[in-house]
């Protein structure tokens, strides 16, 4: 691989290449999410959640296990909200119980994976799992603020963005490109300035306001 001098310098200092590439991917994925929000109109759970889920996917052995864990977390969050509703608990204890439920469920999923000889699932490292468990709080907040349906839509959008993000970040071409031209990430700054000043309709808004435009 054709590696830029600065990356060579990092490597000589002992930083692993994989880490350097992951860090260089961060602004690219972030810009991608910002673009989806401002121009396309996909909201997801803000910028941080899809970003971190993308990296959790990258850190699991194969994306399908990541998706399985993600789905398990959201499912547990949904079910537990209904289970806990009649108890009328305060917010933090309620979230704590949900996290307990999610933890048990994930453990179940891992054991199940192991039992079905899917050793890949059982051997997923702890950090991506922890990251995904924290999504449950985000999910609950949205559930309270905007209702169940919206929370599910946003969760699916987050999942979608993270999956696409995963494929972008693991693309052989992009990895090679960043290794050769790491300074290219600076180009995300002017792109984001343009996105930050963008006042046009989002693509989804053309669809949302179709009736109005037709009737004008």
């Amino acid at each position: 691989m054709n590696v830029s001098p600065i990356i060579n310098f990092f490597l000589r200092e002992g930083v692993p290449l994989e880490t350097v590439i992951l860090i260089l991917m961060l602004p690219i994925i972030a810009t991608f999410i910002a673009f989806l929000r401002q121009v396309v109109g996909i909201k997801a759970f803000g910028i941080y959640t899809p970003l971190i889920v993308t990296f959790a996917f990258l850190a699991t052995n194969g994306i399908k296990y990541g998706i399985a864990i993600f789905a398990a977390v959201i499912l547990a969050g949904m079910v537990m909200r209904f289970v806990l509703r009649p108890f009328r608990l305060l917010y933090l204890p309620r979230v704590a119980i949900m996290l307990t439920a999610v933890a048990i469920l994930i453990l179940g999923v891992l054991v199940l994976g192991g039992g079905m000889r899917r050793t890949g699932l059982a051997s997923v490292s702890i950090f991506p799992i922890l990251i995904m468990i924290t999504i449950v709080e985000k999910f609950i907040t949205v559930q309270i603020e905007k209702g169940n349906k919206m929370a599910i839509i946003l969760a699916l959008e987050t999942l979608g963005i993270s999956i696409v993000g995963y494929f972008i970040a693991s693309s052989e071409f992009l990895i090679r490109f960043l290794a050769s031209y790491p300074w290219a990430i600076l180009a995300t700054i002017p792109i984001n300035i343009i996105l930050g000043k963008w006042t046009g309709l989002r693509l989804t808004e053309y669809w949302r306001f179709k009736e109005v435009i037709k009737n004008m």
Partner: peptide, 19 residues
């Protein structure tokens, strides 16, 4: 015509940034 008319709509970006 559709695109021209759509300029009369206030979108999320414009609402936040300009208003």
């Amino acid at each position: 015509n559709f695109i021209k008319k759509s300029r009369r709509i206030l979108g999320m970006n414009s609402r936040n940034l300009e208003y």
